[in-house]
């Protein structure tokens, strides 16, 4: 069944369908009950499933995640909301010291099937602490799955998969994509997390992107096509587990690659991707893997964020730098 949904609606639908399908799914966090969340992702859930299944918590992120750990230890599948990227930091200790490690330290006795939803990244004109790209902190922490959708269909499928997963998932929702609409097939079987996907075919170079940067990469590919260059766009979707196979196959098919990501580039997920591609596709590469990332600065104020964010021009500049003159 196809429906046109915004990403926000698709996420809401995924929560609703997961709650209907599995009684052990509980949704909680700040303002998720009556208000339906500040982005309305949990809209209507408390009314439909009751205030036990979807409830407002006291305002304390460490408490929210810590309580979710306990509920997961006791047979439930909590899905918690952090209101904004930077407001998940009070929960960092719970996430890195417990959520990520519980399975390992108990030699598999205590898995934590839980999802931590985080509206993240910029491009919405938010004042400070409302636009952080926090993926590297989580992706760097062994024991966490980290995924991020780039369109409504993926938002639905990935969230269903995250809730069904027996590992804890940090689910990063690109805020600037919340209200873009697209067709979603709600009946597709839920694919497990961990697979990248080619969003646009191309033969000259591969743009590797995820979450909020995928539309930027697609726009760049469209602009490049007008200039006679064929760019393939790959959406990583799952930062951990990382789909080396699909990524390498894509890069090998073009021989050139640029990674596009909004987070500051230093010690970033983009760096990890560039390093992996370099190690694994070295013999097929005509140029070093490029990176277009955010600047290495604290997220700037709204009036300056355009200078920070990767845009089409920066992506095309990076593609220009891929040693075409000596090329294959």
């Amino acid at each position: 069944m196809n429906e046109k949904l915004t990403m926000a609606q698709a996420l809401n639908r995924a929560l609703r369908d997961a709650m209907a399908a599995d009684e052990s799914v509980y949704v909680f966090g700040e303002d998720v009950g009556r208000l339906g969340g500040v982005f309305r992702i949990t809209d209507g859930l408390a009314a439909e499933f009751g205030e036990d299944r979807c409830f407002d918590t006291p305002l304390a992120e460490a408490g929210i995640v810590g309580v979710a750990v306990g509920m997961a230890m006791n047979g439930m599948r909590p899905v918690v909301e952090m209101q904004f990227d930077a407001f998940a930091y009070p929960a960092f200790e719970q996430i890195t010291s417990h959520v990520a490690k519980m399975r390992n330290r108990t030699r598999g006795q205590v898995p934590l099937p839980m999802v931590i939803r985080v509206p993240y990244a910029g491009g919405i004109g938010g004042v400070e602490h409302h636009s952080d790209s926090s993926e590297a902190y989580f992706a760097h922490t062994p024991g966490l799955h980290v995924v991020t959708p780039s369109d409504p269909a993926d938002a639905y499928g990935l969230l269903r998969a995250a809730i069904a997963s027996d590992d804890p998932v940090v689910f990063l929702e690109p805020k600037k994509l919340y209200f873009g609409a697209d067709e979603v097939d709600l009946d597709l079987p839920v694919a497990p997390v961990g697979r990248a996907v080619v969003r646009r075919p191309g033969t000259d170079a591969t743009l590797i992107a995820y979450g909020p940067s995928v539309p930027v990469a697609l726009d760049a590919a469209a602009a490049a096509a007008a200039e006679g260059r064929s760019l393939q766009v790959l959406d990583v979707r799952s930062l951990q587990p990382f789909d080396d196979e699909t990524v390498c196959r894509a890069v090998r098919s073009t021989g050139r690659a640029v990674v596009v990501a909004e987070a500051p580039g230093f010690a970033s997920v983009a760096s990890e991707i560039a390093a992996r591609v370099t190690e694994r596709c070295w013999d097929a590469l005509a140029a070093p893997v490029g990176r277009v990332t955010g600047l290495d600065i604290p997220y700037p104020p709204p009036k300056l964020e355009h200078l920070h964010l990767p845009d089409v021009d920066r992506v095309l500049d990076a593609v220009d730098d891929l040693r075409w003159e000596e090329g294959t």
Partner: peptide, 25 residues
Amino acid sequence: TLLSGEWHHGWDVAAHRVAPLTTPL
């Protein structure tokens, strides 16, 4: 200044002895 989106903070902290507006609760 913070809420105008021009920068994160606008006044002389030490001169006024007023810390920046803080958002993380």
